[in-house]
C-alpha cells in the first residue's frame, strides 16, 4: 500500500517545496506591499468594535422588540376598552327602546333621580 503511494507523495512533496521556493523568492516590492497591507490590517485592530458589542446587539434588538410589542398591545387594549364602553352604552340604549316602557319615564330620569336624592320634610 505504502509503496504505491510513495511516488505520489514524492511529487506532492516536491510540488510543495517548489511552491515554498516561489513564496520565498517574492521580490522586495511585493514584500513591501504585503507588509504595508499587514500593518494597515493590524492598525484596524484598535478601531474594531468592542467584544461586548456582538452579544449586546441581539440583546438590544430583543429588548426593543419587547418594548414595541408592549406598546402595540397597550394600544390595542386601550382601543378594545373604548369600543367595549361604546358597545355597552349602545346596548343599554337598545334595551331602553325595546323595553316597551313609557318613554316619558326615561326622559324624566334626571328629575326622578333628583327627587329620590332630595330630602323632604316628612308630613306628620
Amino acid at each position: 500500500m505504502n509503496t504505491t503511494r510513495e511516488p505520489e507523495d514524492r511529487w506532492v512533496r516536491e510540488a510543495a517545496e517548489h511552491l515554498d521556493g516561489q513564496a520565498a523568492e517574492l521580490d522586495s516590492t511585493i514584500m513591501a506591499r504585503l507588509r504595508q497591507g499587514r500593518k494597515a490590517a493590524l492598525g484596524s485592530l484598535h478601531n474594531r468594535p468592542s467584544s461586548t458589542i456582538p452579544w449586546l446587539r441581539p440583546l438590544a434588538a430583543g429588548l426593543s422588540t419587547v418594548a414595541l410589542l408592549i406598546m402595540v398591545t397597550a394600544l390595542l387594549m386601550q382601543r378594545v376598552s373604548v369600543t367595549e364602553t361604546h358597545r355597552l352604552s349602545a346596548l343599554e340604549d337598545v334595551e331602553i327602546f325595546s323595553s316597551g316602557e313609557d318613554l316619558e319615564l326615561f326622559e324624566n330620569l334626571e328629575f326622578y333621580s333628583w327627587l329620590s336624592e332630595a330630602e323632604f320634610p316628612e308630613k306628620t
Binding site: L19, Q22, A23, A24, L26, I30, R33, L34, G37, R38, A40, A41, S44
Partner: peptide, 28 residues
Amino acid sequence: VERKAFVMARMATRDTDEALDIVQDAMQ
C-alpha cells in the same frame, strides 16, 4: 501566511495587483 496567501491569490487571478488587494482584504 502572507507569502503563501499571495502566491495562492496570484495563481488564481494571474494578476499581482489583484492578488495583493485580495490578501490585504483577507488580512483586514
